[in-house]
């Protein structure tokens, strides 16, 4: 993929804090036009990566290309085309929601003051905050602040949106709204880079994902590519569990211990072994099969396999 087709590209991006390698030599490639999910447990280095992408923090080593510029050198040319929500919204509590956005808009010298009011109102409208525009932001709920943060990213037409945990603090309704907002922005040609620790969310919105774990990029690709990296599983419900285990073992599988006496599960770890072959073997051995389920690898299995069990905060 040539550089012109990428919205974000990092090479060997590393950020070291003291002794800790918060981001360890990552190579991100985010194609233009994609909705890109940036997954990882809390503390895996997602936000640090985003800070470096946006020039808020400097990389210890490595290169960052954002749209057509090198960061941080070309920040002045590139950043006006990038909308960002970084580590949650930030507000001036003593200003109204509208005044907050006007302040951030005024910070960029290239925005047009003549259209400021209109653009601010449109952004507020887009996130459903119009009715609270005049209210002081300290009276906003967590979800309203989050909406204000998203509105700030939408103050001008953007080529790239970098949204760090955009649905944080939102109710289910708000989460749906954000998802459809991201979809419509993507339809307009905006590249959307969404970081999240919520798998389901990423699975619903994104066409491509990258997975971070303890500062390293452990996987990157389309959703299907990532799913296919895992192994399918079978789940058998039967009163003859012991016999079923014996049959599965005979096929070269490793049945797993299971809480229910009448359930046997195993990974389809033998290459070329199809679920129907397993079922036929069970029936031939006169195992009374009450239920048989073959399941492709879920993204969750894959995610846990890549980042480790338990969602522990990386130290």
């Amino acid at each position: 993929m040539s550089a012109g087709e990428l919205a974000i590209e990092t090479r060997g991006l590393t950020k070291v804090f003291g002794r800790q390698r918060a981001v360890d030599s990552i190579d991100l490639t985010v194609p233009r036009g994609s909705v890109f999910g940036f997954l990882g447990p809390n503390g895996s280095g997602k936000t640090t990566t985003i800070r470096v992408l946006l020039g808020l923090a400097s990389a210890t080593s490595g290169e960052v290309r954002l749209l057509d510029g090198e960061m941080p050198d070309d920040a002045r040319a590139v950043l006006p085309r990038v909308g960002a929500l970084v580590e949650g919204p930030a507000i001036y509590p003593f200003l109204s929601g509208r005044a907050n956005l006007q302040r951030f808009d005024a910070a960029d010298r290239r925005t047009d003051p003549a259209t400021r009011s209109r653009r601010v109102d449109e952004a507020l409208e887009r996130v459903g905050l119009s009715h609270a525009a005049k209210k002081r932001a300290h009276a906003y709920s967590l979800g309203m602040k989050q909406r204000l943060g998203i509105a700030n990213a939408l103050l001008a037409p953007r080529d790239l949106l970098i949204l760090d945990e955009p649905t944080n603090g939102l109710d289910p309704q708000g989460t749906r709204e954000v998802r459809s907002l991201i979809r419509s922005l993507s339809d307009d040609g905006t590249t959307v880079f969404v970081s999240s620790h919520l798998l389901a969310e990423v699975e619903q919105m994104c066409t491509r994902i990258a997975v971070m774990s303890a500062g390293r990029l452990v996987a990157q690709g389309t959703l299907d590519e990532l799913r296919s990296g895992g192994t399918a599983r079978v789940r058998v419900t039967t009163p003859d569990a012991a016999e079923a285990r014996r049959v599965l073992t005979g096929l070269g599988l490793t049945p797993e211990p299971h809480g229910h006496d009448d359930v046997v599960t195993a990974e389809l770890s033998v290459a070329g072994l199809q679920p129907e072959t397993v079922n036929a073997a069970l029936v031939r051995a006169e195992v009374r099969v009450r239920g048989f389920e073959a399941r492709g690898a879920s993204l969750e299995d894959r995610f846990v396999a890549l980042t480790g069990e338990g969602f522990d905060v990386a130290g």
């Binding site: 085309r81 005044a99 037409p157 080529d159 040609g189 905006t190």
Partner: peptide, 28 residues
Amino acid sequence: MPAESAATHAPRTGGSLGLTLVVSEVAV
């Protein structure tokens, strides 16, 4: 499709002296 949008979204060149931020700062 995505590649061409970069040019169309190009921000205003030149722009003001950036005095709006001073005004905003004083207002805040």
